[in-house]
């Protein structure tokens, strides 16, 4: 699949989901278990993305490098309730500096 096909398919699916919420009866997603699974979906995906982006290297090998230090800095800033852009910018800066120094 080309990058363009991926981009456009993801866009179509996202819009389809949004529109579906205006068209389907609300009863389809009622039910305590069902709504709990749906509410937890973003948590699972985001946590998996954090993990993979931090320690998975080329070819799927796990490794600790500048990315892990960057994530640690991000978590400290999140605990301190820093703004989203501050968190992302600081993480990039930590990784960039560590690499420039040749430490990771």
């Amino acid at each position: 699949m080309t990058t363009w096909a991926t981009v456009l398919l993801a866009c179509a699916a996202a819009f389809g989901l949004k529109l579906a919420g205006y068209l389907v009866p609300a009863g389809w997603v009622r039910g305590e278990r069902r709504s709990r699974v749906i509410a937890l979906l973003p948590v699972a995906l985001l946590a998996a993305l954090v993990a993979v982006q931090t320690v998975v290297g080329d070819g799927g090998a796990l490794l600790l490098d500048a990315r892990a230090a960057a994530l640690a800095a991000a978590v400290v800033l999140l605990v301190l309730r820093a703004n989203f852009l501050v968190v992302v910018g600081a993480a990039a800066a930590v990784a960039g500096i560590l690499r420039a120094l040749g430490w990771a």
Partner: peptide, 20 residues
Amino acid sequence: RSYGLDAAAAAAFAALLWPR
């Protein structure tokens, strides 16, 4: 990579995850 932008992706996901 030299600016650490690849590492910032994990931070972005962490920041989206945090309030949840």
